[in-house]
Write a protein that binds this DNA or RNA. Structure first.
Lengths: 220, 220
DNA sequence: CAAATAAGTAAACGCTCGTTGAATTATAAT
DNA sequence: ATTATAATTCAACGAGCGTTTACTTATTTG
C-alpha cells in the first residue's frame, strides 16, 4: 500500500544466501569470542544485521547453528591442508614446512582455536556428530608417516618417530600459546598476543621441531 | 579436655569451615566440568551438600566463588613447583625432570587444565585480578635460565634457548593433548584419554624435549 | 538461663535468553 | 494482476538461573 508508507527502517533486501552466510559468519565470531554457553542468539543476529527469528528459520536452533559453525571451520582447515605437498619435499624440509604451516594457520585463525577450545569444554559432544572430520584427517597422518619413513631411509630423520605423536606435538607447540594466551600472559607478565612475541615463538617452534626430528650425529 | 575451652570438634550440623571447604571443592569440580557459564550454583550447592544460599553467605557471588577456585588451583601448583630442585641436577637431567614433572602434573590435575581453559575462554578477566600468580611464577623461569646457562657451559645443551619459550613448549607438549582431547580424538579416531596412549605420549614428549635441548654433534 | 550471634533453610523475585506463533512484505510464477 | 512461496518482522512465552528477603535453628557469650 502506498497510502501509508511505514516509517520503519528500510527492510532488508531479500537474499537468503547472503543472510544465511552472514548469520553463519556472525555465529562463528560470537561462538569464538564467548564459547557456546556465552554466545547469545541476539548478539549473533545483531552482528549479522538480521532478526533473531531468522536464525531459527535457517538453522533450527542454537545447537544446529553451532554445529554448522564447527563444520565450517573444519572444512576450511581441510581445504588448506590440501595445499601442503609434503611428498614433493625433502623429508626434513617437509616436516619444517608442516610446522610453519600449522603455526601460521593457527596464528591467523583465532576463531578455529577458540571454537576448538569451546568444543573441548563441552566434552566434544558436537564434533562427535561430524564423522566426516575423522575421514578427512587421517590422510594427513599417512602423509607424515610416509615422509618420516623416507627420512629414516636417507638418514636425515631420527627413526622411531610416531607420525601422530609428532603432528600432535606440532599442533601443541603452535596452538597452546594461543589457547592459553591469557593465563600464560598473566602468569609470566608477558603479552603473548604481541605480534613480536609471536614471531619469536615461531622461530623457537621451528628450531625445536627441527632439532627434535633431526638425526643426532653418532652419540657415543 | 577442658570443657570451658572452645573446642574445635566438628559438630555435624554446624561447621562453617567444613561447609566452606566443601563448597569450594564442589565449585572447583563443577567449574572444571562445565566452565564458568556452564556451571550452575544449584549444582555446586548440591554437590557440596548444602543450601544454595550458603554460597552467597560465604563467598558473596558466583564471580567471587570462581575467583576463589582459581586462586586455589594456582596455589596448589605453586606448592608443587617448590618440590622441584633443578639446581641440584645436571642441566640436561634437570630439563628432562621438569618435562616429566610438568607432564605428570597436568595428567593428574584435570581440574587445573579445565579451569585454565575456562579462564582463557573468558579472556583472562579473573586471573588478571590475582597479581600474586605472576610474582610466584617468575622464579621458575629464572631457575630454568640458570640451568640452561649451566648446560651451555658444560656443552650439554644447545646455546640460545630462551627459558620462557622452552617452558611454554614443555607446557604445550604436556597440556594440549588434554586440553584438546575431545577434538583430537574425534579428528584422528584415537582415544587420547586412554591411559596407555598417555603413557606413549609421555615417552614421546620426553624424547622430543631431550632431542630439542641436546647439543647437536658438530653439524657442518 | 537469657540474649546475641551466626549457621542454615525455604521460597520467590527479577531478569535473561532460547524459542515460537502468527502476521507482514518482497519476489517469482501463472 | 493474482496467486503462491518464501523471506522477514514483531511480540511474547516459558524455562532457567543468579540472587535476595525473611525466617528458623543451633551455638556462643555474659
Amino acid at each position: 500500500m502506498d497510502s501509508s508508507t511505514p516509517n520503519r527502517q528500510a527492510s532488508r533486501s531479500r537474499d537468503p544466501e547472503r543472510t544465511k552466510g552472514e548469520i553463519l559468519a556472525a555465529a562463528l565470531a560470537v561462538f569464538a569470542e564467548n564459547g557456546y554457553d556465552g554466545a547469545r542468539i541476539q548478539q549473533i543476529s545483531h552482528r549479522a544485521g538480521c532478526n533473531p527469528r531468522l536464525i531459527y528459520h535457517y538453522f533450527g536452533s542454537k545447537d544446529d547453528l553451532y554445529l554448522a559453525a564447527l563444520r565450517k571451520i573444519y572444512a576450511e582447515i581441510r581445504s588448506r591442508e590440501e595445499d601442503l605437498n609434503l611428498a614433493a619435499l625433502a623429508p626434513r624440509e617437509a616436516i619444517l614446512r608442516l610446522a610453519e604451516f600449522t603455526f601460521d594457520f593457527f596464528d591467523g585463525n583465532a576463531p578455529f582455536v577458540s571454537i576448538t577450545r569451546s568444543e573441548n569444554l563441552l566434552g566434544g559432544q558436537y564434533i562427535r556428530q561430524l564423522p566426516e572430520i575423522n575421514r578427512l584427517s587421517n590422510p594427513l597422518i599417512e602423509k607424515i608417516a610416509e615422509v618420516l619413513k623416507r627420512g629414516e631411509g636417507t638418514g636425515e630423520i631420527r627413526p622411531g618417530i610416531d607420525p601422530m605423536q609428532l603432528y600432535i606435538s606440532i599442533v601443541a607447540l603452535s596452538a597452546h600459546h594461543i589457547n592459553a594466551a591469557h593465563t600464560l600472559s598473566a602468569t609470566f607478565g608477558t603479552d603473548l598476543t604481541d605480534p613480536k612475541w609471536r614471531q619469536t615463538r615461531r622461530a623457537h617452534v621451528v628450531t625445536l621441531v627441527a632439532a627434535a626430528v633431526s638425526k643426532e650425529k653418532s652419540q657415543s
